[in-house]
């Protein structure tokens, strides 16, 4: 999983439109996958650190908690219904979003497209 997030990090560096969308986003986001913690620290739209937890001293703004199978489906070119969006995870009971949800919503397009950057990786691998 950590490789996927570092891949997203490098893909984001190569995505000028996302860096522009996220230019005001400097926060740490927690992605919890099957209980394993991954902290993505953004600075002005770039991911400057990907850190694997557990960590009790890393503050985060909002968190997406889900499972590896759900993320794997999310990263398919055409995910099944419910797995096609992070809010879908919540709707079908495969995920939870905690923390400053308004912060997430203000940056929702940016966050969803950043997370979706791993989708192209799978397409290339296929």
């Amino acid at each position: 999983m950590i490789e996927t997030f570092t891949h997203i990090q490098s893909q984001l560096d190569a995505s000028p439109h996302l860096l522009r969308l996220g230019r005001l986003f400097s926060e740490t986001v927690l992605i919890e996958v099957d209980g394993d913690e991954y902290y993505l620290t953004f600075d002005k739209g770039r991911i400057v650190q990907v850190m694997q937890g557990p960590s009790r001293k890393t503050p985060w703004r909002f968190a997406l908690r889900t499972d590896a199978a759900a993320l794997s489906e999310f990263w398919q070119p055409r995910p099944a219904p419910g797995f096609h969006d992070v809010f879908g995870f919540v709707k079908i009971g495969r995920g939870r979003i905690d923390g400053d949800i308004l912060c997430l919503v203000k940056n929702l397009r940016f966050f969803k497209e950043v997370l979706g950057l791993a989708r192209s990786k799978q397409e290339q691998a296929a």
């Binding site: 070119p77 055409r78 995910p79 096609h84 969006d85 992070v86 809010f87 879908g88 919503v105 203000k106 929702l108 397009r109 969803k112």
Partner: peptide
């Protein structure tokens, strides 16, 4: 915040891949 941009980002959850 821009309601239109947030609304679009929300409803994108309802668009098929």
């Amino acid at each position: 915040a821009h309601g239109g941009e947030m609304g679009a980002a929300l409803v994108s959850a309802n668009i098929s891949p």
